[in-house]
Simulated scan of single mutants.
Amino acid sequence: MAQQQITLTNYTFKPGSIEVGKVVVLPGTKGKVILKGASANSFTLDKDNTLIAKKPLSEPWVDVVLAIEQEQSTRQETFRIVKDEFLANGVIAHRGAFKNTGATENSIGALQHAIRLGCAGSEFDVHMSSDSVLFVHHDHDVNGIHIEKTPAADLAKLKLPNGEYLPTLKAYLLTGLNQNKTKLILEIKPSAISKARGQALAQKVVELVQKHQAQGWVDYISFDYDILKKVLELEPYAKVAYLNGEKAPAELAKDNLYGLDYNLAVLQKNPHWIKEAHRLGLTVNAWTVNSPEMMDWLLERRADFITTNEPEILLEKVKKLKTK
């Protein structure tokens, strides 16, 4: 897949709004951006290339075709713009909603349960097979079979405890794209083999998200800072957050990250980072928070997101806060 030459600053639109975001020509690309196809009848580009709907959009999502007119050719891309009805309760189901549902963690069933519960996001982990196919699983191995050292044909035969086959990222994305309430929180796992392979994994992930026009649904997280930098190189306005916990908010803001996503213990040790992050325009997430008392501690400090194996408990707490 050829690298995109144009991108958007935003892939969602607010209900009732007509402005989407700016169309950005990536470095090294020259030419005039124009609208093509049916989208040319529904949208317009203003003088600074802001994409604007001619009337408020009613559909859950709509495809926009943008092209760059160059001297001897025209290169076009299709982008899916999704209505921003994503839930704002801050509840992120860790590896999907599995603990209280009977689903296997990181299964498509766990994702579906998280969506049905009404979680703001469902987190999941991605690895790459020896022949560069992307699979969803937490550990580097499945019952002793190392994902990175095994071809996709063999991995596809592996069954999870709930009877599902080991899901590919493609299948996971296609399930998540059937709705626009729950964000897909995609964790790119550092390679156990090499840093170079981690970079290749990041590239494959972003390309697959772009291929399925899923940018409006997907946020990225990783323990590998260089992986997040690679994501931003390929998709400059993607929402990415760092997991490892050793970097102060100012460093993340300098590198244009969306937020920090740190272990609860890190934030307890550095509670001032929560206010500092917010002052710098960063979001704050904490993982993996299963204690009701610690949920309360984070809610009192206005953490934007809380990642938990107990989404049912956290959803109830958020609901009660809203009724006070």
Rank of each mutant, 00 (worst) to 15 (best):
Q4H: 13
N10R: 14
V20A: 04
G21L: 03
V23G: 12
K30R: 04
S42M: 06
L45W: 06
K47I: 10
A53C: 09
L66N: 02
T74Y: 10
D84P: 05
N100P: 04
G102F: 09
A103F: 09
N106M: 01
L111W: 12
D125I: 08
H140C: 12
H140N: 03
D141I: 02
K149N: 12
T150G: 09
P151K: 03
T168M: 01
T175S: 07
I185K: 02
L186T: 00
I188N: 15
I188W: 14
P190D: 11
G198I: 05
Q203H: 12
V205M: 09
V209P: 01
V209C: 04
H212P: 04
Q215P: 07
W217G: 08
Y220L: 09
D224S: 14
K229H: 08
K230L: 00
V231A: 06
L232W: 10
Y237V: 02
L243V: 02
P249M: 03
K254P: 01
N256L: 15
Y258G: 04
A265S: 11
I274G: 02
I274S: 03
K275L: 10
K275C: 10
L280Y: 07
L280N: 11
T288C: 06
M295I: 03
L299M: 12
I306V: 15
T307W: 04
N309E: 15
V318E: 04
V318M: 11
K324V: 07
